[in-house]
Simulated assay, not measured.
Amino acid sequence: MSVWQNLGERTVYENRWVKVNMADVELPDGRHLDHTVIRLRPVAVATVVNEADEALLLWRHRFITEAWGWELPSGGTGEGEDPAVAAAREFEEETGWRPGPMRLLLAIDPMPGISTSHHRVYWSDHAEQMRAVPEDDFESTRREWVPLAKVPELIARGEVKSANAVAALLMLHHLRLR
């Protein structure tokens, strides 16, 4: 079995959100290379699918990629925080809706070649609206219940760009509409 060996890392930048390291990697043929490693806190992601098979999504702009798109509420988990609790918290802060019990839908690593960005996606089949304007209303310009039947079309048109949202919405589309 040929594997890349991480022989050690040195930190080149760090703040409370991210740590950027350079790894000394030995390839299976014995050569060495420096490889960037971005270490991030785990991410908790959430959505609710209602009885009409609609998912509550956020329409938001991402300044880094200069793009608008549909996303799922998400955020970093605190040290030792249960990811399901973090997902429910983020969902309520970003939508104004309190989800019912959260169930793990999937766990993904969207960029495993460079990052430890581990995402756990949760969903619930009901929620209660707690406030008309969410606590974190700056996170999105609007929040809408979007039919799961439209998910493939939205993705094909490039309106869902986030890897965790694409994976989760396609999984929910498959599970709920088959």
Rank of each mutant, 00 (worst) to 15 (best):
V146F: 09
G113W: 08
V133G: 06
S124G: 03
D82H: 07
L154R: 02
M111K: 14
D82E: 10
D136R: 07
D82F: 10
S162L: 14
G80H: 03
V151Y: 08
E159G: 09
A67F: 09
P101H: 09
L148M: 13
W68T: 03
E128V: 09
L154K: 02
A168M: 08
L154S: 01
G78Q: 05
P147S: 05
L169N: 03
I108M: 07
V160S: 06
E135G: 00
V133C: 06
T141G: 05
P110N: 08
R62D: 15
A127C: 05
Y122P: 00
W68D: 03
A88W: 01
P101G: 10
R60D: 06
L106Q: 11
F63Y: 12
G69M: 00
A55M: 05
H61Q: 09
L105I: 10
R89Q: 08
S115F: 03
P99Y: 00
S74A: 12
P73C: 02
V133S: 05
E93N: 11
G75L: 04
H119A: 13
A132P: 02
V166T: 08
A84Y: 01
S140C: 12
E153D: 10
E128Y: 02
L148K: 11
A165C: 12
E94R: 04
P110F: 09
R89V: 00
L57Y: 05
N164Q: 15
F138M: 12
N164A: 14
I114V: 15
A163C: 10
A167D: 12
S162H: 14
P147I: 04
V85D: 04
E79I: 10
S140F: 03
R120W: 10
L169D: 04
E71N: 13
M130S: 09
E81H: 04
H119N: 15
A132F: 03
R62N: 15
A163G: 09
V146W: 11
S74L: 10
L106D: 13
L148S: 07
E79Y: 04
A149C: 13
S74T: 12
H174L: 13
E66W: 05
F63P: 08
E139W: 09
E93W: 10
R143S: 12
M111Y: 15
S140W: 05
H119C: 13
A55T: 04
A67H: 12
G75I: 03
S74F: 13
A87P: 08
M171N: 14
S162N: 14
I108S: 01
A149V: 15
I114D: 11
P73Y: 00
E135L: 11
L104M: 10
M130E: 08
E153Y: 08
H119R: 14
G80Y: 02
A67G: 10
E94D: 14
A84V: 04
Y122M: 00
L72H: 04
A132S: 03
A84R: 01
M130R: 05
V121Q: 00
E54W: 03
G96N: 02
M102G: 01
E71D: 14
L56H: 01
V160K: 06
E159W: 15
S74P: 08
L175Q: 15
